[in-house]
Design a protein around this nucleic acid. Structure first.
Lengths: 225, 225
DNA sequence: ATCCAGATTGAACAGCTGTTTAGTGTATGA
DNA sequence: TCATACACTAAACAGCTGTTCAATCTGGAT
């Protein structure tokens, strides 16, 4: 839930306007003047409250990501993760600014993006461990790399949402377009791969295993997929 | 293979410098003056050759992507795809500029990025069809959505390469860091999921199927994963 | 030898950028 | 009532931006 009313501190209003603009246009293209106009204040006030444009960025990072990172660490249960997704799906445009902002943070290299990605991987790893103990998830040799792969796959929806909804013809509620319809269309194919696999047998896997084991520290001449 | 020597047209030298800078810094941050300096020419000459900064961007798009798109359409064989990857792995820093540029193009919304993503999906779809006929890839209900999911997963390495090599502790040869070591570390976990699946049984898949079928065009209140 | 089209440059331009500064309100506490 | 601190603004600043322009410098065709 969010405080949708406009009874916020001016500082908070500026911050929220900046989150929206940074997410929509990117940090470089979004100007201090545009942020000020979106918040209905003067450019000088933006600097007065945050010191500089970089200070404003830091405040946005902290507001969007520290919050998410805390959620990820507290709510280790996979249950609450699903609840969080449901909450998002019920109020898509409420969170769309944060979604777009996180996408930008993961693209533009920054410590905040690093922290967020690491938090996602950590949470994924916890889910995998819990799933293995519960018997719902297979046991993997390299649990960490597997978690990284799963997290990377999941975040690809965030990074490429625009293209996904575009090629799938989804009517996106937001410009960047990660709406309920898109997730509905991707859920079954993704779950099918995660359940029955993508290949019919272990031919590719075995071949790759052989190649990688025989050249452990080679020049890296051969690879599969 | 690339023309690594410096016996290029001045126009081509500017274009290549721009591709490198746009990929490394992003289009907004990379200035015309920086491109000119990297190419060893004056800022005016950049405009003289490309009309404007946007014209330079278009030329870069065309050089990097039209080339890739053509390759993707001609080489439908999965063989050549693997050969292309091998070629890249043997000369990583030769292609790193193009790699970084494509990542930026997929992020910043543009027609070039749309065309590239669509080409990747199309190529993935062809590979899937060929694999189904050859018996190496399972048959899927929704081939198109499956291709989109696979393509999205594959491109996530491109989009999040920096974070992947960072958390996996890979020694990246390039700043954005999609090197042979990273791919070697991700190949087996990814292939394992693609071969044996991620879940132990079809519990999640069945549950999602039920939910999605009963609410075909609902408000979208429930979702799995 | 002359001419000309194109490559190339240095300097300048107008506009936008983040930031500063001086000043005006406007509460709150003494 | 006064003073102080803070929110806030309008205007200006210096620096950077993409772009233009006039002027050279080339190399090849006539």
């Amino acid at each position: 839930m969010r405080s949708n009313a406009e009874d916020l501190t001016t500082r908070a209003r500026i911050r929220d306007a900046a989150i929206g603009l940074f997410g929509r246009e990117g940090f470089a293209r979004a100007t201090v003047r545009a942020v000020a106009a979106a918040a209905g204040v003067s450019p000088g006030l933006v600097i007065h409250h945050f010191g500089s444009k970089d200070g404003l960025r830091d405040a946005c990072d902290q507001h969007v990501l520290a919050q998410t990172a805390t959620q990820g660490r507290e709510k280790t249960h996979p249950e609450s993760t699903r609840q969080l997704i449901q909450d998002y799906l019920n109020h898509p445009d409420q969170y769309s600014d944060e979604i777009a902002y996180i996408r930008r943070v993961l693209s533009d290299e920054s410590e905040a993006g690093d922290a967020f990605f690491d938090a996602v991987v950590r949470q994924t790893q916890d889910i995998i461990h819990a799933g293995i103990e519960a018997g719902t998830i297979r046991k993997f040799d390299d649990a960490r790399s597997t978690a990284v792969v799963i997290a990377s796959n999941s975040l690809s929806i965030l990074m490429l949402g625009r293209h996904l909804s575009r090629t799938l013809g989804t009517v996106a509620p937001e410009p960047q377009g990660i709406g309920p319809e898109l997730l509905r269309q991707l859920t079954l194919p993704a779950l099918e791969i995660y359940t029955h696999g993508f290949y019919t047998d272990s031919r590719f896997l075995d071949a790759a295993r052989d190649v990688l084991q025989q050249s452990t520290s080679n020049t890296g001449r051969e690879h599969a997929l």
